[in-house]
Design a protein around this nucleic acid. Sequence first.
DNA 1: TATTATTGGAGAGTATCACTATCCAATCAT
DNA 2: ATGATTGGATAGTGATACTCTCCAATAATA
Lengths: 206, 206
Amino acid sequence: MRISALAAAADLPVATVKYYLREGLLHPGVATSATQATYDDSHVRRIRLIRALTGPVGLSVQQARTILGLVDDPGDDLYATLGRAVSALPPPVDEASVDDPDPYPRARAALEALGQVYDPHYAAVAQLEAALAATEDAGMPISDARLRAYGHQLHELAEYDLERMPQEPHSAVEYTVLGTALYEPVILALRRLAHQDVAARRALGG
Amino acid sequence: MRISALAAAADLPVATVKYYLREGLLHPGVATSATQATYDDSHVRRIRLIRALTGPVGLSVQQARTILGLVDDPGDDLYATLGRAVSALPPPVDEASVDDPDPYPRARAALEALGQVYDPHYAAVAQLEAALAATEDAGMPISDARLRAYGHQLHELAEYDLERMPQEPHSAVEYTVLGTALYEPVILALRRLAHQDVAARRALGG
DNA sequence: TATTATTGGAGAGTATCACTATCCAATCAT
DNA sequence: ATGATTGGATAGTGATACTCTCCAATAATA
């Protein structure tokens, strides 16, 4: 399969495929001469993954490259790899200054109330802090009770997810990293639809 | 309060405040002369809301304008207003062609399995379809069982949210529209942290 | 074999976005 | 009186995600 066939298979302009190659999201094909290389089905699947991450998941090309890099080359510490993946996911957070004794007060309080184990360097802690601060800034702070309710439901979801994690290390990384990124839009859409369902049932007196 | 004081109160450059005024995100101050206007605390709060929406929530200025417009001027149909708000939220979806008899097969199957009421024109249906298609394209399709598990948990969250919706129409719109947008980053961060918690407990043999 | 088409690769061009900077005459503060 | 500030308009900036143009080398076809 040459580049034009690959582009046709992925339903993209050739220029865009070249762009992904240049940016290192897509592995080069096997060069058969100075001006020819062949691509196979793995390249088609990779492009589909790139489009999934830059489309519905909403990652930039830069962020997608990081996520793909972690899946390609996970390292031996699943925990650290997942941490790096979460750092690459939006919303972006700037790291706290070293001298701040309590950089994430809202997140800390929330996680303590939930009784959850957490690593303060994990990017999601800063993301939670920023999200909670945003609800306050916007004049709609989240109550402790709501936070506990959310935390409890999401913890159950997390247990469901982890129970189904593959044993084999490489598959586990792929499952965890891609599952975190790819399933998030599904969760948001389901929540929006659940709101609509509940509202509709109440309006009908159900 | 003049524009420079407003900018200082919001910790933003004056040029940025002018930009929000130009873009219609921020209501003009009361003009006291040809080259002077006064702003008050409502403008400070509005800027905080704008920053919350364009920051952690990740909306573009365009999308934030739509959301703010709905909160400012909700119309009398809460249902339709929420629909418009969800349309403005990412991920963006292009509307299905009119002649397609079954534009959202995956979303339809999922919602039927969950027994949920839904309006096919609701943007979240298309968003769910795109999210599910993305998981398939990426080679990690969501199983029916997982979809049911997610749907069930999120439905409980939605019930919690709707039980706490204010009665008064204007407050209800604000609660629903802003709650949908502002609480989503909290949910994603909590899920990521719940994954970490569950993983850590399992690693410790808990 | 001649000729046309396509390729990989490099470079530059384009459109959008979210600011950011510069100007201006009018007005305010001192 | 004089310098600073204002609202408003216009233009400039840097980042992002493509998209286009060129090129000589090679492939495909006549």
